[in-house]
Amino acid sequence: MEGSKQKKQFDKRRFIGGAIAVVVIIIALWIRGVDEEVPTGERIQETRYFMDTVVTMQVLAENPEEKADQAFSAMKDLADRADRFNPESEVVKINERAGQGPVEIDEDVFAIIEKGKRIGEETGGLFTIAIAPLMDLWGFGKGMQPSVPDDEEIQQVLPLIALDGIELFPENNAVAIGREMKLDLGGIAKGAVVDYGMEVLKSLGVEAAFINAGGDIRVHGLKEDGTPWRIGIRDPRREDRGHLTDHVVEADTGSVVTSGDYERFFTENGERYHHILDPRTGYPARGLKSVSVTGELCVTADILSTAAFMMGEEALAFLEDYPGYEGLIVTDEGEILTTSGF
């Protein structure tokens, strides 16, 4: 009788202890939930056309329209300053004084050029911001009629597109390029402008944002339901834009950029020539249909995706070794290969 009473008391204590533990766990989970700060502002989407592409922005914040507008204005302004087809741009200033010594430019465009040269050198010169003479020769410049140039002309132009012809003077944001050289930031500007827009949004205190400039995408923060942004990757094996690979990138920070040989191409004598020109040969790169790169900065992903496109299947090993960035390649044979962390 005594023993049974003791047992009953023991069970009761255990029950109370268990209940307290459950309450503590619930409170701990609640506090953690509060700590994660799931965004509470309003989310809007706005789309505009500039940089010769469609730029879509989603902003989750208080007064999101105003913040998106500020970011769009800043992005458009930087894009104009970095556009070699805009006579007022910083790049035109440099190109017009080719071979005549350093030209002082604004710090934002200088930062893009510095990054383009530095990361371009890391790719062994496969990405070059001095590509303009070759692009113009092929007629891939704005409003030009593309055609296959003579091989002799291509060989003459190749020495002009090397990165070592660009000299940087960081102390006064000055750039000097060799005679007959010309810079074209087209392969890097979209990524740089997207990063710039995201920094503006962050400085305005937005909780979460998504910027997509023609497929160059950068995200920040979690959506209002606490989930990450989800980004599909176009399947270049199908001509229609609606088809995607099975890979979906989920992220609350970082970028996704894809370089492909679709759309910007022309056909001559039955052969297809696209606009991603290999600085080693002067001809369109062969071997891959597309390269997608993920990582923190959109500008770096932009450079790496273009450079990797020149490498054929070696692109995978290059991206595997590049710290902080991952990649997916689609070969000409239609095979999809990814780095270990993609």
């Binding site: 789309t47 469609v54 879509t56 409003g143 497929g215 995408i217 980004i231 995607l244 950029v257």
Partner: peptide, 24 residues
């Protein structure tokens, strides 16, 4: 995107794929 004519065309609306964007 129609580059020489500076014309942009896009579709807006709700999406049943659950994707926020496509990298292409």
């Amino acid at each position: 995107v129609c580059v020489p004519n500076q014309l942009g065309i896009w579709l807006e609306g709700s999406d049943d794929t659950g994707l926020d964007g496509i990298s292409e």
